[in-house]
Design a protein around this nucleic acid. Structure first.
Lengths: 231, 231
DNA sequence: TCGGAAAAAATTGTATATAATTAAATACAA
DNA sequence: TTGTATTTAATTATATACAATTTTTTCCGA
């Protein structure tokens, strides 16, 4: 088990929220691995707080789908199965398309300009060949579109769904041969939103998810084989 | 404030879950009104438990969007605004359409037969003119479609979104002049799923939500006027 | 009467203590 | 050795205690 958990001491948030963020981050980055038990006393000692905020944080993680509760046995990090990822992506495909369509109607001039800049920045980022930088540029580009919908519920849902695949977000970025494609797709999305062409925008958004799905599924297969070999 | 809260004593669920269900039910039925504060000691006394399970239940309600947290002030029942309802319905329209499409591909023969029966039962239910019975028949019909997608995440999300409008679910049922329409729409959905006609199924599902939106928004306007008059 | 400071009360946030339950270890008989 | 009963330890579930903060009330002076 990893014992290097540490909290980012945000002074003004209740401890339960700090713990919540810390544990979530640890799960998403893979620091806490699927199947690993979350034991309250351990975590409390590790993070230097009492069990109460730990428990409250775990309740929220449960509802977010990041941990699984077994009554009277406690919580463990939720397993990510191929099926659950496919389920997530199936919903995201639809919601991302909706975001693109809504953005056509509702995006402001300022946001549109920001989107144009984000496309350029992404292109720049690919030149660094640093997956973290590219991923960051990609995320902030999509954030602009999602926020432009002005639909708070939609924003929250898309963020939550993205979160579920955080661990795999590098996979479709790593493959450098796909970068040109990504740049093109971004440009198409930008252009179609600018022209208020909903159908093209929605299709481009879907294609984007399809590509993501392919690389994630490839990665899952690799991990599955690795697990098989270890046994 | 309403003091008649009572728990349904499910012996084998942890108290936090019993409290969670109790509070959720109370919020959805309007027993706890928007803006009303949820004070831990009060609720603990009312329900005959300590503050701990109350707090844990509130954390989950927070993430479900049914309560709003204000740090060091506690939780209150989330306000339902016109905007937040529109946001919810906008997402639901898309997800319900997705459900209908996926159901075309994945519904089993048994589920299809159940759907056919549910349509008939709904038609029967309208004859009773009892809104609760009709609403129940409507919900179980839609449940069949949603479950038929086999997508756990989608099922969870649609249920959560439906929940947000629980209080208004009677409004579009009450209007008896719309019943013939509803029966027709259900039949179209059933027929198009049977024929695997995704486009028709998706459109029918969207239309269904559109109609729901109309009656909910009408109701909201009425409530708004009533509030205005009281002031 | 009004405004505002000080005190009191109420409420949340956090920690700890106790009870109940489950999992693991041990001991013993077949 | 294996299977099972019994004990022990670990862990969660719940309750309570204390600290910190916010809200309300009270009281005093202008």
């Amino acid at each position: 088990m990893n014992d290097n958990l540490q909290m980012n001491g945000d002074e003004f948030l209740p401890l339960r929220d700090v713990v919540f963020n810390t544990l979530r981050q640890a799960i998403l980055t893979g620091e806490l691995k699927p199947g690993e038990r979350l034991m309250e006393i351990h975590l409390a000692n590790k993070l230097g707080v009492s069990r109460t905020p730990i428990r409250e944080a775990i309740r929220k993680l449960e509802l977010e789908g990041l941990v699984t509760m077994i009554p009277r046995r406690g919580a463990e990090v939720a397993e990510i199965t191929e099926k659950s990822l496919k389920d997530v992506l199936e919903v995201r495909r639809t919601l991302d398309a909706l975001c693109a369509e809504l953005a056509c109607d509702r995006i402001s001039d300022g946001e549109l300009e920001a989107l144009r800049m984000a496309c350029l920045k992404f292109e720049e980022a690919t030149k660094t060949k640093d997956a973290r930088i590219i991923a960051k540029a990609d995320v902030s580009l999509h954030d602009i579109i999602v926020k432009a919908t002005g639909n708070q519920r939609l924003i929250q849902l898309v963020n939550n769904l993205s979160e579920q695949m955080y661990r795999y977000r590098f996979e479709y970025i790593k493959d450098e041969s796909g970068h040109a494609n990504l740049i093109d797709e971004h440009r198409i999305i930008y252009e179609s939103i600018r022209k208020k062409d909903k159908e093209t925008a929605a299709n481009a958004a879907k294609l984007h998810i399809d590509n993501q799905e392919k690389s994630v599924m490839k990665q899952i297969q690799i991990e599955k084989q690795e697990r098989g070999r270890r046994k």
